[in-house]
Amino acid sequence: MARFGMVIDTAKCVGCMDCVVACKTENNVPEGFNRDWITTEVHGTFPTVQMEIRSERCNQCATPPCVYSCPTGASHVHDVGGIVLVTKEECIGCKACIASCPYDARFIHPEGYADKCTFCIHRVEAGMDPACVAVCPTHCMHFGDLDDPNSPVSKLLASRKHHSLMPEAGTQPSIFYLT
């Protein structure tokens, strides 16, 4: 079984938001909302400063609280790659998933359903990378099968230092940040 994930190289990322823009056009994300975003973490005092810039989105958790909290089953784990998806027709917009997500990855679409990153499943199933990965001018984002030890993402994780976001939340995120 494949488990799709992303490995993002923070050493290369410049935080330009191209990933956010590409997601927006690819998925027609409505004005006022975005499915991914940039976080900039600054430590230290001028001029001794360290900074990590991250492209963030739904972590496509292997233990997804949003799916467990969904009363209708609209939020579910897709059988391809373990991607967490929302069936909008089944969603009643109750926001339980939004409350349960530690990453604040979801929002209510103006049409009334919970919306978030899909790892561009429509592209992935057609053999392409998600739009954010494909657009990145710095080539800092990588997409692939975390369960395949020979995939480029697994190799990057094996060879470079990395972390994920809030591992203590027990969600088992599928997105990793190289440092």
Partner: peptide
């Protein structure tokens, strides 16, 4: 920018002079 990121990836030595700690400075 693409070439800059390539340079970062290849481990080029980068020197940034700026009154502001820019992205490049990081």
């Amino acid at each position: 920018v693409q070439e800059f990121a390539e340079g970062v990836g290849k481990g080029a030595t980068i020197i940034v002079v700026d009154p502001r700690f820019s992205v490049a400075a990081s």
